[in-house]
Design a protein around this nucleic acid. Sequence first.
RNA 1: GACCCCGUCGUCUAGCCUGGUCCAGGACAAGAGCUUUUCAAGCUCUCGACACGGGUUCAAAUCCCGUCGGGGUCGCCA
Length: 436
Amino acid sequence: MIRVRFAPSPTGNLHIGGGRTALFNWLYAQSKNGQFILRIEDTDLSRSKKEYIDEILNSLRWLGFEWDEIYYQSQRFDIYKEYAQKVLKEDKAYIEKSESGKEAIIFKVIPQKIKIIDLIHGEIEFDTLVIKDQVLIKSDGTPTYNFACVVDDALTKITHIIRGDDHISNTPKQILLYQALGFPLPEFAHLPLIMAKEGGRMSKRKGATAITEYRQMGYLPQALVNFLMLLGWSPGENREIIDIKEAIKLFDIKTVNKTAAVMDMDKLDWINNQYLKSEDPQSLTDAVIPMLIEKKYIDKDNFDRDYILSLIKLFQPRLTVLNDFVDWADFFFLKNITIDPAAEQKFLAQDLSKEFKLFIDRLGKLDKFDIAAIEASFRELVAELNIQAKALIHPIRVALTGKTIGPGLFEVIYYLGKEQTKERLMKWVKQRRGSP
RNA sequence: GACCCCGUCGUCUAGCCUGGUCCAGGACAAGAGCUUUUCAAGCUCUCGACACGGGUUCAAAUCCCGUCGGGGUCGCCA
């Protein structure tokens, strides 16, 4: 049975790189019908926080990676001490006293050549001559990372260690410990790191790092997962948008790239748009309702879900992130809309009182107020006035929505309703009359 | 600095293992156009890469060596 693990440290949010490491572990487990184990590396008591654990777990669930087992290193200190004692008894380690009299257990590193066969990189050779003796148990009684990691991986029967490239140099140290403890060696696969556009590691200064940030920005988990998957792996046949089930079938850890990849937000945006377009409008509606409530665009206890669903359909193909909907469809929910000054200058500087008035009259006379009828009556009007359709469409859109961009005008009018349309257009008619 | 990893269009990649079918394919971005009611979407086209230098070979993006460049690690952090 294949067993892999993802071992985050709760000293911060789930990082985008961590998300990808989790993804590849999870993918590998799924593809091999194995198990995905979670291990919380909270040995640093002062830096580990409960809220980070919650946040990491939530992010993993949001991405869709359920785990089969979970362990907390802070609950296993006795185990580490026991194994450290064993190493000590066998004279493979020694005790070092600090000035304050506290004792640490230090592992003796014996010079030798260590060769690992990495599933992604192939052979990597190290000379332990350059490695110093390793602390196993710190003087405060807590285990060090490499020691706890080895003990847990061995005890929880992890067969494949899939982790970031930055752990390559830890590998020989850990192998030494496996040997000293008499544990069988797992397989190793080191994933290339994700780099920031500016070069170097992803950090707060270089774009969004936490998975939750992407969630808040309105990216769909499937889209983020698809994007992360493509960073360092390709399903072949020039495929880009790929369903997770399909990916599980095609995934092979050995075909993962060796090269670090740069995080490209443009591509993420494109992928998110692709998913948004094909997503069920019903679920997008559900996703967007809390956002609308938060913005106070709708009342938590009294809103028309079907209406929101209709609006979602209107905007769906043009959304990059879900939040775009909240920004772009605001005029449907607000009584007093804000007109973009540049748009006003461009389309409403001229006096269109006559045209607006005529259009309002026509709308009033419509016996069936639907999209087709609205458009037909509008077309008749511009034909009568002998002007181009767009000469009137753009000003009306700005008057109605405050924006120059948006869905088709006749849909907008239909969903805005006869009264609101009239009201918003009349504002410009009156304003004109009042001014010299 | 030492050790380790990596190096195909601006970016993500296919090809590399098993040299010829690659004057290197796809996608994002950029640019142009079509469509059109704006934006988005869609469609068409354009721009654009084997880091460099040596080998090996009839033949190299593919194999070998070196250089350069990028990244990572050197904690009683994880």
